[in-house]
Amino acid sequence: MKINPLLKQYITESILKSTLRFPSRLNLPPTVLRVALEQLSKVFPQPKNVAFKALRIAGIRAEEIKPQPETTQLIFHIHGGAFFLGSMNTHRAFMSEIALRTQMQVLHLDYPLSPEQCFPDVGEAIYDVYRMLLDQGVLTKDIIVSGDSCGANLALGLALRLRDEDPKLLPSGLMLMSPFLDLTLTSESLRYNQKHDALLSIEVLETGMSHYVPKGIDRSDPALSPIFADLKGLPPTLVQIGSKEILMDDAKRFEEKAKAAGVKVEYKLYTGMWHNFQMFSAWFDEAKQALADIAEFAHKLDRN
């Protein structure tokens, strides 16, 4: 029996608000929320026809997902979770879908979460993994760095550091999904979308920052809030955002500033979608389209 798309969306948003957004606003220990999120992530169907391999790179646990035995193109993904949630388990189904859609291998990390580790140690760990890949012979032209939510923050921060160190170290492209780029929380959409975003709340962002940002550090520092960085010299970048996201203006502001700096940006806005909607491709056409757009962008980089 087919469910009316609007009814299906209403039901999904109601479930997400009651099972994820509301509990995450409570003052619960990070370990409790992490376990709950991993349990809830089991509802995402795990695609078949992909192979998994556990790795440890630069001391960080990682997982390689391959849709075919021979593939040189690599999507280096940094998961979201407001700096204190998320794991390879929560994102495995999503990353498997991306691997299948792009026919590229995906590498995603169990990077250190806060408060166990905070800024700048988290970024250092991710940087060390990237440099280790290069030391192992992976070519920068074969790497696309991607991230969702706070993972997009870390992905952009990584790219900016590589650019400043040596532009030759930059990957072929960036993919920023539902990016959280302004830790000062000055984007207007945080207010006008706070009742509409089914997944993410301002309280969760504030909790995450309290774990991630050491006391006394200015949150407008570009190393923390890359929206305030000089964006010149970045590789081609795909930005995806939903119209109901509290972070919508983070994405829009990045697009405007990056284009003004001469960066090739593809900005995609998906009507009626909430934070990290791409993970719901099993049920929503907008999420399926987002994955198709990711594949198109990745293939375009590969051809170039």
Rank of each mutant, 00 (worst) to 15 (best):
D110R: 08
P45Y: 02
L224K: 05
P5Y: 09
E63K: 14
D230M: 10
G137Y: 08
A51H: 14
L183R: 11
E13A: 05
N49G: 01
L55S: 07
P45I: 01
D197W: 13
Y130T: 00
K141D: 12
T19G: 01
F254E: 01
S189P: 00
K8L: 07
M175D: 08
S18Y: 07
T237R: 15
R219F: 04
L162H: 00
C150F: 05
H79D: 06
L160F: 01
A152S: 12
L134S: 12
P5R: 14
G233Y: 07
D302S: 13
Q73V: 00
P120N: 02
W274C: 10
L85H: 11
S149N: 08
L55Y: 01
R163H: 08
L301M: 13
I246T: 04
K195C: 05
N304H: 11
D166L: 12
I60C: 07
V129N: 03
K195I: 03
Y111H: 14
D135Y: 04
K232Q: 14
R303F: 02
F76N: 03
T90W: 04
Y111M: 03
F84P: 02
A223C: 08
F284P: 00
H196I: 00
P69N: 12
N304D: 07
A62K: 00
D249F: 09
V32E: 04
A229K: 10
D110F: 04
L113V: 03
V204Y: 04
K48C: 02
Q9H: 09
W283R: 12
W283Y: 09
V129A: 10
L247Q: 12
L158C: 06
A261H: 09
E64H: 10
R219G: 02
P47N: 10
D166R: 12
L181Q: 10
I217K: 15
A198Y: 09
S96R: 09
L231I: 09
D302R: 15
K48D: 08
G157K: 01
N276R: 11
H77V: 05
Y10R: 15
S146K: 14
K232Y: 07
Q117M: 14
G123L: 09
L170H: 05
L183N: 14
F297Q: 03
G147F: 03
F83W: 14
F52P: 03
G208Q: 02
G80I: 05
E38A: 08
E245V: 10
L154T: 02
E266W: 07
M273P: 01
F44K: 11
N153K: 12
I143F: 04
I98P: 03
H275Q: 13
G272M: 05
L55F: 08
P30E: 02
L20D: 06
D293K: 15
Q136L: 12
F180G: 03
T71A: 11
D148Y: 05
R25H: 01
F22M: 12
S225G: 04
E124K: 15
L169K: 11
G233D: 05
A290M: 09
T12F: 13
Q289D: 08
D249I: 09
R25C: 08
E206L: 13
I144G: 04
A198S: 14
L100M: 09
G208M: 13
L158M: 01
Q117S: 13
V265S: 06
E255W: 01
